[in-house]
């Protein structure tokens, strides 16, 4: 989705003056941003910049110290249960249960999200067909090639038709061909109106996003479409943008 379309659609994540403190340490320092319906939003920052803290808050796993936050139209303080039902999550590190089959994983996650047996059957048949994985329905995850697992994990994160999917470094280390198939799936999903929120410190993943924000020391330093940031900093790619912003921090621990 291009930038024009992004800003014309409705925000599904609204964050206003969000703070998170751990004692005297400020992990999130006055974050304000909106993410729109159908947008692929990249949430970037070095290790320790505060992006995991912020993502945990947006997923309803942790409370902010202060700030006004709405996710999928629900209030972060009062409607955490609703938020959890309306979001999906996938990470490269953990995706699916290896000792369960493809279908058992779908049944498990469908059940957790409160889908009926009928819904689970329909939805998983549908997802398997979209992936062209019908023959792998009863295969154990551990017998499925690494690249396929990623695509499958993404589909499982969509089983309850969430409004927003959170992806945590989804394609680090994945082969280039699978990585592209994966990003194509993400684009198709976003084109269908689902918002994609990607946290990563792989700058080449950032280039696939419609818009990115870059966090340094708990603050959002810049935000915008990758092409615009690359131009603004007068550099070749997102990696260079990131290095320019983070340079001052490079030698510290």
């Amino acid at each position: 989705m291009e930038h024009e379309k992004v800003i014309n659609s409705a925000p599904v994540i609204q964050v206003k003056n969000m703070y998170k403190r751990f004692g005297s340490f400020i992990a999130n320092n006055d974050l304000t941003f909106d993410v729109y319906k159908g947008e692929i939003f990249g949430f970037l920052g070095a290790n320790g910049a505060g992006k995991t803290t912020a993502m945990r808050i947006l997923c309803g796993l942790s409370s902010p110290s202060s700030g006004e936050i709405q996710v999928a139209g629900f209030d972060i303080y009062k409607q955490v249960g609703q938020i959890k039902k309306n979001i999906g999550y996938m990470s490269q590190k953990f995706s699916l249960y290896e000792d369960l089959t493809v279908y058992e994983n779908m049944r498990l996650f469908g059940g957790i999200y409160g889908l009926t047996n009928k819904e689970i059957k329909e939805r998983s048949a549908n997802l398997l067909q979209m992936l062209g994985f019908e023959n792998a329905r009863n295969t154990l995850i551990k017998d499925i090639p690494l690249g396929w697992r990623q695509k499958l994990a993404f589909s499982v994160a969509l089983i309850h038709k969430p409004k927003i999917v959170f992806l945590d470094e989804p394609t680090g280390g994945v082969d280039p061909m699978t990585r592209r198939q994966f990003w194509e799936m993400i684009h198709e999903t976003a084109a269908g109106g689902t918002t994609i929120f990607v946290t990563t410190h792989y700058m080449d993943e950032a280039e696939y996003c419609d818009r990115v924000s870059i966090m340094v020391d708990g603050e959002i330093r810049v935000m915008g479409p990758p092409a615009e940031l690359i131009q603004r900093f007068g550099v070749e790619n997102m990696n260079e943008v990131f290095i320019k912003l983070a340079r001052a921090k490079s030698t510290e621990l």
Binding site: A46, G172, H201, F242, I243, K249
Partner: peptide, 9 residues
């Protein structure tokens, strides 16, 4: 792997 862009460089 897993190291940020500045440290990698």
């Amino acid at each position: 792997t897993g190291v940020d862009a500045v440290s990698r460089r």
